[in-house]
């Protein structure tokens, strides 16, 4: 029951504020409270090289680049330091199976932290 209800509640709250796309693995806290899934290329690790001179999106010329906005917010908004530190972490590929599910449940169950068995990061040890 809760599993069916929560996605509706989550979407109702997050859609108007962040234009949430219900990827089911929310990373808002680490991306300057800006949803990377609203990037037309759904880039989760920073901006592409096509950002316009005025800071707007290559694909949607009258929209500010999602990552330009994220970076501005990361720098200027008051946020827990740990959130800011997470900004440059390497976020893994999206698990398409979670599309439409509640990221709140996936957070609590740690389902959103599951990555493919081969995924690893060097974590700076390069």
């Amino acid at each position: 029951m809760l599993k069916k209800l929560l996605p509706f509640v989550e979407h109702a709250i997050k859609k108007p504020v962040w234009d949430c796309r219900m990827c089911g693995q929310c990373v808002l806290h680490s991306t300057g409270m800006t949803c990377p899934m609203t990037c037309p290329k759904t880039l989760r690790n920073g901006p592409c090289g096509g950002v316009r001179e005025n800071g707007n999106c290559e694909v949607i010329p009258d929209m500010q680049c999602v990552w330009a906005k994220a970076y501005d917010r990361k720098v200027s908004l008051p946020m827990p330091t740990v959130w800011k530190e997470h900004f440059n972490e390497l976020r893994p590929p999206v698990d398409m199976r979670l599309q439409g599910s509640s990221s709140w449940i996936n957070l609590l169950t740690k389902r959103d932290q599951q990555t493919p068995a081969g995924w690893s990061t060097t974590d700076g040890d390069h």
Partner: peptide, 15 residues
């Protein structure tokens, strides 16, 4: 291309 300062951090991330 903007955001300029972030481009440097992103280079490090790719490295």
């Amino acid at each position: 291309a903007p955001p300029f300062d972030y481009r440097i951090e992103r280079a490090l991330k790719k490295y």
